[in-house]
Design a protein around this nucleic acid. Sequence first.
DNA 1: ACTTGACCCTCCCATCATGGGAAGGTTTAG
DNA 2: CTAAACCTTCCCATGATGGGAGGGTCAAGT
Lengths: 150, 150
Amino acid sequence: MAGMNISCAAQLSGVSAKMIRHYESAGLIPAVARTAAGYRSYTPEDVHRLAFIRRARAVGFGTPEIRQLLSLWQNRQRPARDVKRLAVEHLQQLQERIADLEAIADTLSHLISHCRGDGRPDCPILDSLAAEDPEPETRSNRARRRQASK
Amino acid sequence: MAGMNISCAAQLSGVSAKMIRHYESAGLIPAVARTAAGYRSYTPEDVHRLAFIRRARAVGFGTPEIRQLLSLWQNRQRPARDVKRLAVEHLQQLQERIADLEAIADTLSHLISHCRGDGRPDCPILDSLAAEDPEPETRSNRARRRQASK
DNA sequence: ACTTGACCCTCCCATCATGGGAAGGTTTAG
DNA sequence: CTAAACCTTCCCATGATGGGAGGGTCAAGT
């Protein structure tokens, strides 16, 4: 019945109007109904779908994964296995990113702890960045090796 | 003397030719010398600077921070304090991102552990994403609160 | 000398999620 | 009837990175 405006749908779903249009153009949500004047008109179901997307994004899923999640959600016959596999893969990616960031943070805090940080110019942080030889263990390093070993 | 080609500089510095041009247009490195034909010509110093940038990026610094690091590096009179402050701020950001990702990963692995993942369709992961009410603790949540409390 | 392959150049486009903003039409309350 | 508050589409920007097209250049082999 009462279709609502995009800004109303935005408030109810917690997704900005900007992003709602974006998701529509990205095909995450089907094109909704329009009023005579061309205004988008949302049903509560549309809003529910948008909120689903918001929550999926909040746990870090990207557009392609969300697309799959939505289709699994719609499908009453889905095997929970498929959902779980998707989630586990995503979790592994998250854990990789966390490990990468932690390695970086460790390197950095190591450097920081060796820097007196007073008014004098000598600083092991800059020294390390300027170092000729040693290539420290970094994300891009390991990513490169991962690539190479594929 | 022997200025080198961009691909040579790329190999020596570990920065792709693509990114070298990019850093130049972004102003991270001054425009280098050109041959008569317009080819960029790099000195060992240029390469050193590029490698500095690569290492700075490897510990996660972004363009603006690297800009500052480079100018501190050039400046023989810099106080180590300034370098350290930059690094500490960056480390804090890293730790925030790590905490955010860990919160997400925790939520996700919690959901996963409750999903049998067999051939049947009921799945707490989808249920949670479709949930009407409870808004789980997420990065965007806290970021929003941080914004709001500023 | 001439061809060929390996370079180099500059632009443009795409990613991913998000927002800013302009130009212009619509609706609604005063 | 007007002004505010909507709505629409389209373009641009972020940040790091790569792909590719179209076109010029250089070095080595014939």
